[in-house]
Design a protein around this nucleic acid. Structure first.
Lengths: 127, 127
DNA sequence: CTATATGCAAAAAGTTTGCATCTCC
DNA sequence: GGAGATGCAAACTTTTTGCATATAG
């Protein structure tokens, strides 16, 4: 009975970048859906829980989500202007993080790496 | 007239890791200070504003602060348990981020890199 | 019918703002 | 007296929870 979850998943998949729960809710309402904010949050939780979407936090404290092409570990290059995201991979970084952790005696190493910039499209649009 | 800001700065400096505004507030009150939560927030804002402390967001959406030894760009290796943080530096990562951005035509590249793990002390304490 | 999904309203949690007061100069 | 600092309470924002209803099987 997860039609709503499918709707959220699809809305996210159709987006080219990271979207916040509030954004998605606004999008869905705008296109006529009668979905509730609560359901968007719950769908997003379920989706991120099952690893189907990536989550990260903006500086403003908002959680933003993205449906990723791969379920493997990767990072993102995100446009600060339009939030379009490119998935990037770099084994060297993973390795570096693991090594730094080990060097200092830390175990259970995890890491977050995100790159931000302005994409060509937005750069052109902005002049 | 920024004695309160000094107090906050010092509390942060004495901490070995990232602390949230609420944490610092609790600490200060615990040691007898009559400071208000508002002031802690304002002090933290001012401090991060002038680049004297680093800020980042936890997965829980809390903003955490740390007084760093250097004002130069660096990253942190943070203990998930006690939040002790070690400052780490790695030119290769900076370079990689810049290259990835350039490759995709992005400009104004910035990045966030944080490594998390469990430090030796906490590992021992936890068994 | 039973279990899950959904949505509204209220509750939380963290952070910011309004406003009156206090302090330093 | 004037400018900035401070604190309390209220406002805000984002996210979660309670609860009654609707829907699937």
């Amino acid at each position: 009975m997860s039609t709503r979850r499918e709707v959220v998943r699809q809305a996210l998949t159709e987006s080219s970048g990271f979207r916040s729960a509030q954004d998605l809710y606004a999008d869905l309402r705008a296109e006529g859906s009668k979905i509730g904010l609560t359901t968007v949050y719950r769908a997003l939780q379920a989706l991120s829980n099952s690893g189907e979407v990536d989550v990260l936090r903006t500086d403003a404290g908002e959680a933003v989500y993205r449906a990723c092409a791969t379920e493997e570990h990767h990072h993102h290059l995100v446009c600060r202007s339009c939030s379009t995201a490119v998935e990037v991979e770099e084994p060297a970084v993973e390795k570096w993080a693991a090594e730094v952790g080990a060097e200092h005696g830390f175990t259970g190493i995890t890491h977050t790496v995100e790159i931000f910039g302005i994409c060509t499209g937005c750069r052109a649009a902005a002049g």
